[in-house]
């Protein structure tokens, strides 16, 4: 199959995670992964980001598929359920808003907390980065955002190993959000599809 430029976006995802280790301020670049899928779904009504441009998905496919690091088992039912998908989205967004609130507190005068929080629980000290040349809130947002990106990558890697390479896509909050936006934009068609869904396809 012919390769396109966007088939190599996994390189950028890998570089992004590595750059964050050297200077946390690179975490700001991760906003691309938040804003672009939302923009595409709102403007074009498609999940082109997930389908073509998601570097993280490509990375999981490469590690789990080509390098064989995945067990290639179907994820358990609970992980694939709507409850889990929307529950995880709600939890993820709550933690994201909390991170924004912490950034606001630093903006308002609270002291900068130089730590990356992994899996919302484990605080990893991250004092080697020079953030003196930016406002403390800019650095605080970077710490918070890198925590979000690192946590989701770790979760994605764990489910990649345990189940199929792109199991993360099943409960990825961005994927859930963009699919929701697309469904809202094409309400009638979505309803017709769900109604007409039957076990034996006729064509």
């Amino acid at each position: 199959m012919k390769k396109h430029w966007y088939d190599y976006l996994w390189i950028f995802s890998s570089i992004y995670l590595i750059l964050g280790l050297f200077n946390i301020l690179f975490a700001w670049l991760g906003l691309i992964c938040f804003l672009v899928p939302l923009m595409i779904s709102v403007v074009k009504g498609s999940k082109a980001y997930c389908n073509r441009f998601c570097g993280r998905g490509q990375l999981f496919e490469l590690l789990g598929g080509k390098l064989g690091l995945s067990r290639k088992k179907t994820p358990p039912k609970f992980l694939r359920s709507k409850w889990f998908r929307y529950g995880f989205l709600t939890f993820f967004m709550t933690m994201f808003l909390l991170m924004l609130y912490n950034t606001y507190l630093v903006f308002a005068g609270a002291s900068l907390r130089e730590a990356v929080t992994l899996l919302w629980m484990f605080k990893l000290p991250w004092q080697w980065t020079n953030t003196a040349f930016v406002s403390p809130w800019v650095a605080q947002f970077a710490f918070g955002f890198y925590s979000v990106m690192l946590t989701s990558t770790v979760l994605g890697l764990v489910t990649m190993i345990a189940f199929k390479p792109r199991s993360w896509c099943v409960y990825c909050p961005m994927g859930t959000m963009t699919q929701g936006i697309c469904t809202l934009k094409n309400r009638e068609e979505a309803k017709t599809w769900k109604k007409g869904h039957k076990k034996s396809p006729s064509c």
Partner: peptide
């Protein structure tokens, strides 16, 4: 045999 897509498809695009 043909592929049949269930209603809980997440539209990730891996199949495509």
């Amino acid at each position: 045999n043909i592929a049949y897509i269930g209603k809980d498809c997440v539209a990730c695009g891996v199949c495509t």
